[in-house]
Design a protein around this nucleic acid. Sequence first.
DNA 1: ATGCAAGTGTAACAACTATCACACATTTTT
DNA 2: AAAAATGTGTGATAGTTGTTACACTTGCAT
Lengths: 235, 235
Amino acid sequence: MVPTSETHNWPDVSDCPVCSSISPENREAFFGGMMYKTKHYKKGDVIARQGDICKYLYILLKGAVKTEMVTETGGQLTIEVIKAQRPLASAFLFAENNRFPVDVITLEDSLVLMIPKDQVIELFQKDAAFMQRYITYNANKTQFLSHKLQVLTIKTIKGKLAHYILEQLSICHSFSPKINTFLMDKNQTELAKSFGVTRPALARTLAEIQQEGAIKAERNKITVLNKTLLQNMLS
Amino acid sequence: MVPTSETHNWPDVSDCPVCSSISPENREAFFGGMMYKTKHYKKGDVIARQGDICKYLYILLKGAVKTEMVTETGGQLTIEVIKAQRPLASAFLFAENNRFPVDVITLEDSLVLMIPKDQVIELFQKDAAFMQRYITYNANKTQFLSHKLQVLTIKTIKGKLAHYILEQLSICHSFSPKINTFLMDKNQTELAKSFGVTRPALARTLAEIQQEGAIKAERNKITVLNKTLLQNMLS
DNA sequence: ATGCAAGTGTAACAACTATCACACATTTTT
DNA sequence: AAAAATGTGTGATAGTTGTTACACTTGCAT
């Protein structure tokens, strides 16, 4: 940090997929003259509530958050966990009804960059690569939501669980096709919330699947014994 | 197919919200030199299947389509009905996993304009207003999907129906706050599919809500008698 | 070591919905 | 006008899940 006007600490967004066109060298060209702010949050803080108006592009610089919906029946549904660095609410900023459809709650101490909407539009014009990444990122979000919808329409808990286990298994297999054991990435309570079901019902079903010989479940460690059996549980 | 620029029939997209920057006069500037094609479909034809790769921006010029998912359990879930003129699959074109998450099926004889992805990107550069409308349109789609998710997490059929009726009622009220009667926009079978439940269960629940005095249901005509009662059914 | 908090296993019961089956009403076709 | 197709009302039964409650385990903090 020596030479000329360089002592300003521009936000480091080098790990954000939407901002990957912004190298450390041209950060100044990007952020210089732009209005923005950063904000710290502690673990458990609420960054935004369902219904809040979304005026900024939020970029999670450090930390992690979860987004969840409170359904009109009082139940909870966890949509996703987002770890730094990623944009938050990128899709809602430009919607005509620009309100958060979810609560955004920090899981760790976090740092958030906030860029006003009109500044984002300026960026689009300045930097076509940024714009295209933004569009792609939003498109991926839509795909993700569609997939979430599809999983939610699986009626039975057994079906949802089988789907989840097969999904996790295929992630493992992409590293090593031999391994049939994995650790669940969430505890039962969280998993139940992401399915929109109750925790006891989930535990019961997990035991059932085990009893039928498709898996072995030890605490949060799952071993798949019979993949075909699992696939049949989807239907 | 005649000499001067005058007689060429450029596609008429004047009713498409994403293309509203394209007035009849500058259609030539917009479409001239662009690669595109149009395609006719008959009622009931399949425009795209779940899993198909999405290479084009589809714009529904005439007709109407529905999009639906086949869940892994074999059940069906209707996502939405889209009437001309609107883009189809606008969000998926730019996703890294650019596959249709839904079946797209025509409800009437339809005409579809197809523009290759790279041409769309060129359009973004030529026409900033087009780009911004595109982003807004996709953002609205994401909002729509989020809302759909929330409705799907309403557990009971009674809750879903109450939500639906209140939604329809508020649409009526936006025209005239005095009217408490509306015609259902779908028949029971379609409504049941959009809820992801069975038709007999839906009919039964509708009768129940009537019995409790919240509504009067005559065939597909609903009269709301007690709004508060309906609101209580959500929880 | 002890106590506490969080996570997990499990049971009994009530509530809800799918499934299947069929009668009846309404609209469209012939 | 009759026949066919579509849409609606309703019943009985079985299966699945929510609810509530409690025992047990594990890891962590005091």
